[in-house]
Computed example of a mutant assay.
Amino acid sequence: MRLYGCCLETEIPMLVFELISNGTLFNHLHGQCNEIPCRISWLDCVRIATKTSYALYYMHHGRPRLIFHLNVKSSNIFLDESWTAKLSNLCFSISIASGEDFFQGHHPTEMFLGHINLVDCFVLSMEENCILQIVDDKVLSQGSNEDIHAFSELALRCIKKNGDERPAMREVMLELRRIQLLIRSKQNNEIGSTQTPLRSCN
């Protein structure tokens, strides 16, 4: 998110960021946007994930010192008027010099819904080859087995407990972009196949 400035004249200093009109990804995923469920399309979900991976890749490689966010979650991903993802809340982030091996034992954040560990539930579904049973109905109606499984396989690699087994953010970014192009290509083919061909005048 773009930082415009700060105010030091208050008891607690305040940061002034750009106005993000579409709220957080969390609100849209959980139906808390204007109290009306806002179901994001499968293509937009992958596009948002791709844009977020761009931001993380820049943090990891676009500066002399690497920056690790450490708190990536849907409530820290904002969406602007064009539904472009904006990563925020770097209060837990740290900066290290290139070559330092600080994150060897860092584990991905675990998510809970009630008493259910969503990461464990996802891993079990992948191991039992029944991932489609836990996928959102809208994703099932808009996606194909190929792109859903490709996205799931990438997510499975990203939650490995051993850091050496997780893909680098560049690899994540490129794979998400490939999946995004795959979805767009299939949607364009579906649109083309439903159009009525023009008849010859002869």
Results as ranks from 00 to 15, higher is better:
His107Leu: 12
Ile96Cys: 12
Asn89Lys: 08
Trp83Thr: 05
Asn76Arg: 09
Asn76Gln: 08
Ala85His: 13
Ala97Ser: 14
Glu81Val: 13
His106Gly: 02
Leu79Asp: 02
Phe103Ala: 06
Cys91Ala: 10
Ser95Trp: 01
Thr84Ala: 12
Thr109Asn: 12
Trp83Pro: 02
Ala97Gln: 08
Phe102Asp: 03
Ser88Trp: 02
Gln104His: 10
Ser95Lys: 01
Leu79His: 02
Asp101Met: 10
Gly99Val: 02
Ser98Gln: 15
Leu90Asp: 02
Asn76Lys: 13
Thr84Lys: 11
Leu79Glu: 03
Ser82Glu: 06
Phe103Thr: 07
Trp83Asn: 09
His107Thr: 10
Thr109Pro: 02
Leu87Met: 09
Lys86Gln: 05
Thr84Ser: 15
Asn76Tyr: 04
Pro108Ile: 03
Ser88Thr: 14
Thr109Gly: 10
Asp80Lys: 03
Leu87Tyr: 01
Phe92Ile: 01
Gly99Phe: 03
Lys73Val: 04
Ala97Asp: 07
Phe102Met: 07
Ser74Asp: 08
Ser88Ile: 02
Ser88Glu: 05
Ala85Trp: 12
Gly99Tyr: 00
Glu81Phe: 13
Ser93Gly: 12
Lys73Tyr: 08
Ser75Asp: 05
Leu79Val: 05
Leu79Pro: 00
Lys86His: 06
Ile96Asp: 04
Ser93Arg: 06
Asn76Asp: 03
Thr109Met: 10
Ser74His: 07
